[in-house]
Write a protein that binds this DNA or RNA. Structure first.
Lengths: 201, 201
DNA sequence: GCCATCAAGTAGACACTGTCTAGTCGAAAA
DNA sequence: TTTTCGACTAGACAGTGTCTACTTGATGGC
């Protein structure tokens, strides 16, 4: 029988994530998590108040990873504010592809009550701030309409989030023939937006 | 004690939808559904193979409602193909606001396995066809780049779906101050897109 | 060294869940 | 009238989240 892990809290989060990846949030049960961490079914309660606390911790962790992924994508980009804005969107989409289980947990307020787990909203706001700063940079450089940045933030966020959501949870990924890979899908959508932007009067 | 409903199948779907609206999919239990339909816990199994069959039926029903809402929004619009395209998007967003519980069930493939419940995918394809036809109409009228309509379909679908998803499940609706109502939110996003389209060279 | 303290894990209990089964009942068909 | 059959009931089973009391092992002060 394998011995107990040194850092049970981390082991619980890892086991939970693995279960969520394999069979969705529904397959994530406290007892199976405990089993995978080689510990009895009561042990996780010493690290998390209840099941939703695990989900909240994973959601907050997801937003932190998203923030890092966007910042990392922008760091290597030095061809101006618009290029950095695009890199930010690519970072968002890449995060969704790399961490689908996290992604699904992050946008399910019924799983982790936002008023009970404010750390999730805080982490979400930090992620959004990256995008806000990005848009403000574009505005300062004269590459976006001046004024309140929020409309632009919400519009671009919606497009990239919608694309990721439709790919992960929608019927999009089951429609063979349109896009062979998600990367190609994102490229085509980005190209379409660019075409629209450039062909209009 | 209230008597058994005449159409138990419909009563089960209604009770399931009510439960999902109140506490999310997690609160939807076969036994509570049966209780609300004033029937014993085994009765629902005569109308649905298992719990996921109920969810699949609701998801398919949701896509049918979505199709109807988009078609109805377009029917009253006779100011050209672009106006009909915009009406289609408004219909999508309005559906999401009016039927949030349906909406959440429709985009959770882990709840109702698509291979086990092909009727969901079929209904989803019918919904998408509305948008495809809409884009093709714009192309024929010379109001959209010619060629494969799918890139435009996916791009616009992503934006409106992302907006709805962020409003229903994301931190957007908890950010007071930006948009007082979802209608205003949608108007501002649509305006932002329009502004982008018209101010670019 | 010894003992108190305390976080971390165990083991058992409880009410609840999804699903299976055998049995019941009433209406329609023969 | 008897048979058949779909719809429903009632009981069982394993599995679940969460609570509780109990054990254990390390840590600190004396």
């Amino acid at each position: 029988m394998p011995k107990r892990p040194a850092d049970l809290r981390r082991a619980i989060l890892d086991a939970s994530l693995a279960l969520a990846s394999e069979g969705g949030v529904g397959a994530l049960s406290m007892r199976e998590v405990a089993r995978r961490a080689h510990v009895t079914h009561g042990a996780p309660y010493h690290h998390f108040k209840d099941r939703s606390a695990i989900l909240a911790a994973l959601a907050a962790e997801g937003f932190a990873l998203l923030t890092k992924e966007m910042l990392s994508a922008m760091k290597d980009e030095d061809r101006g504010s618009v290029a950095r804005f695009e890199a930010c969107g690519r970072g968002y989409f890449r995060f969704a592809l790399r961490h689908p289980a996290h992604m699904k947990l992050m946008f399910r307020p019924e799983l982790a009550n936002p008023t009970e787990h404010p750390e999730v909203d805080q982490a979400a706001c930090a992620s959004m701030q990256v995008l806000v700063d990005c848009v403000i940079e574009c505005q300062k450089a004269g590459n976006a309409p001046a004024g309140d940045p929020m409309p632009l933030v919400v519009t671009s966020w919606s497009t990239v989030h919608g694309l990721a959501a439709l790919w992960l949870d929608g019927p999009l990924c089951r429609m063979k023939g349109f896009a062979a890979s998600p990367q190609e899908l994102a490229r085509r959508v980005a190209h379409t937006l660019g075409e629209l932007l450039s062909t209009k009067p």
